[in-house]
């Protein structure tokens, strides 16, 4: 019976196409607004890394969006001593603010830099910005991406996906045979990060193996 119920649950996946990210950081802004993350202290649930490639005139810039991988084999979950880190029935990794004691075992355990300390200063600042009543961070805790669980359970996309202007960020359900995003994962074109760690992430990347390098292309 339980198995039947689980089969009906969505198996959400997040796909990032590295070929189309232009580094506009709209995803970071949308996430910060939606989830009240302490951007004033440079703490983000999702971030776009940038790197220069090439030398001299043959120089280019690549962008690498990242967020919590919502690993199915979850190092942070295994490190948490109080049960503050838990997984929803759909496999989304969450933090219970009330149970978090700030030991940071999960932060050190996370191989994807997806967690940060939402400290007292951040809580107070957030309350000033959003108001005591509307602040979703009432206590200090370790914070992380939730795939915008409050949105996806209502049929919406995560804030970063819905705001991405180039559709670099895509959202799908592996249990839906007609989902085009799930099809990208099933086809093997999208790959997870750091497979050797065995974390079994739910975030996949297109273009990990190859990526156009504009500056070099022009030079050639």
């Amino acid at each position: 019976m339980q198995e039947q119920q689980n089969k009906q649950l969505p198996n959400w996946v997040f796909v990032i196409d590295l070929n189309t990210c232009v580094g506009c950081n709209a995803c970071m802004a949308a996430c910060a607004q939606e989830n009240q993350t302490p951007y004033w202290n440079e703490k983000w649930r999702t971030k776009v890394e940038q790197a220069e490639v090439g030398k001299g005139d043959n120089i280019g810039r690549i962008f690498f969006p990242r967020l919590c991988m919502h690993c199915q084999n979850t190092p942070c979950y295994y490190a948490c001593p109080t049960g503050a880190t838990y997984k929803t029935p759909e496999g989304v990794v969450m933090v219970n603010q009330d149970l978090c004691i700030g030991c940071e075992a999960c932060v050190t355990a996370c191989p994807y830099d997806a967690r940060y300390r939402y400290d007292y200063e951040d809580v107070e600042h957030n309350k000033q910005l959003f108001g005591e009543e509307f602040s979703i961070h009432q206590l200090p805790h370790i914070d992380k991406c939730t795939f915008c669980y409050h949105r996806i359970t209502k049929g919406l996309e995560p804030a970063c996906v819905s705001t991405c202007p180039t559709d670099c960020r895509m959202w799908g359900d592996l249990n839906d045979p007609n989902d085009p995003v799930a099809e990208i994962v099933r086809s093997g074109r999208a790959k997870p990060l750091a497979v050797h760690l065995g974390t079994d992430p739910k975030v996949f990347y297109v273009g990990l193996d190859t990526l156009p390098a504009p500056a070099k292309e022009e030079a050639e």
Binding site: Y77, A79, C80, P81, T82, G83, I101, C103, A105
Partner: peptide
């Protein structure tokens, strides 16, 4: 939460 977890919640994964 820390000492309660250590004794009561039956989660024996975390090394802490």
């Amino acid at each position: 939460a820390f000492f309660g977890a250590a004794v009561f919640n039956g989660n024996f994964h975390p090394w802490i």
